[in-house]
Simulated assay, not measured.
Amino acid sequence: MSPVDRSEDPEPSERFPAGLLFVPVRSGPAGCTARFFRTPLGGRTAVGFTSAARLTATLGTDQACIRLCEPALRALAAPLGVTTLTIDPQLSAPAADRTAATARERENSWRRWHPQHVGALRVTGAAAVAACLNLLIG
């Protein structure tokens, strides 16, 4: 048996060029911007897909995308502190329903309190403190 030459095997930590990627984007006031995602541990990551079919299978048919090569995507993400690149993720969580959260926040907001109600709470609190002092002083 002849020895196997492993001198050409890359190290696992080496980055491989992924070629041209389908990068999910969202529209904004200045045009489209790349979407960044979170890893399961909460870190930020740039995401690219090797085919439009993989992007559609993961993010849905309404997801817009642009074509970027891996170095361009890394250069775009680096100034934002995003150093991780995930290629062809298999799963994505649905976006949070911000409308329901905003409605709950408005219902429980201190801004909805009427100034007279706040004043009544202050007067009631002051009366309770005075009553306690009367009991202590006696």
Rank of each mutant, 00 (worst) to 15 (best):
T33I: 01
T33V: 08
T33Y: 13
T33L: 08
T33W: 10
A34I: 15
A34E: 14
A34T: 15
A34W: 02
A34Q: 13
R35G: 00
R35A: 07
F36S: 03
F36A: 05
F36D: 08
F36R: 11
F36N: 07
F36I: 06
F36V: 11
F37M: 07
F37C: 01
F37Q: 01
R38C: 14
R38H: 14
R38N: 14
R38E: 15
T39M: 09
P40G: 11
P40I: 07
P40V: 07
L41F: 05
G42K: 06
G42H: 10
G42E: 09
G43S: 13
G43L: 14
G43F: 04
R44L: 14
R44I: 01
R44H: 10
T45A: 15
T45R: 06
T45F: 02
A46Y: 02
A46F: 04
V47P: 00
V47A: 12
G48I: 11
G48W: 11
F49D: 03
F49P: 01
F49E: 03
F49T: 00
F49I: 02
T50F: 02
T50D: 06
S51C: 03
S51G: 04
S51A: 10
S51K: 05
S51T: 15
A52H: 06
A52W: 00
A52P: 00
A52V: 11
R54G: 09
R54I: 00
L55M: 08
L55N: 03
L55F: 01
A57I: 04
A57D: 11
L59T: 07
L59I: 08
G60L: 02
T61A: 14
T61H: 11
T61N: 11
T61M: 07
T61E: 15
T61D: 14
D62A: 14
A64T: 04
A64D: 09
C65T: 02
C65W: 13
C65L: 05
I66G: 01
I66D: 01
I66T: 14
I66V: 15
R67H: 12
R67C: 06
R67L: 14
L68R: 06
L68Q: 04
L68H: 00
C69K: 12
C69L: 01
E70V: 00
E70R: 11
E70F: 06
P71K: 13
A72Q: 15
A72S: 13
L73M: 08
R74Q: 13
R74A: 14
L76T: 11
A77S: 15
A77M: 06
A77E: 01
A77F: 02
A78H: 13
A78M: 08
A78G: 04
A78E: 13
A78I: 03
A78T: 12
P79C: 11
L80C: 07
L80F: 13
G81L: 09
G81V: 09
G81F: 08
V82Q: 05
T83C: 08
T84Q: 15
T84V: 14
T84M: 14
T84F: 10
T84P: 00
L85P: 05
L85T: 15
L85A: 12
T86F: 02
I87K: 06
I87Q: 10
D88G: 04
D88R: 06
D88M: 10
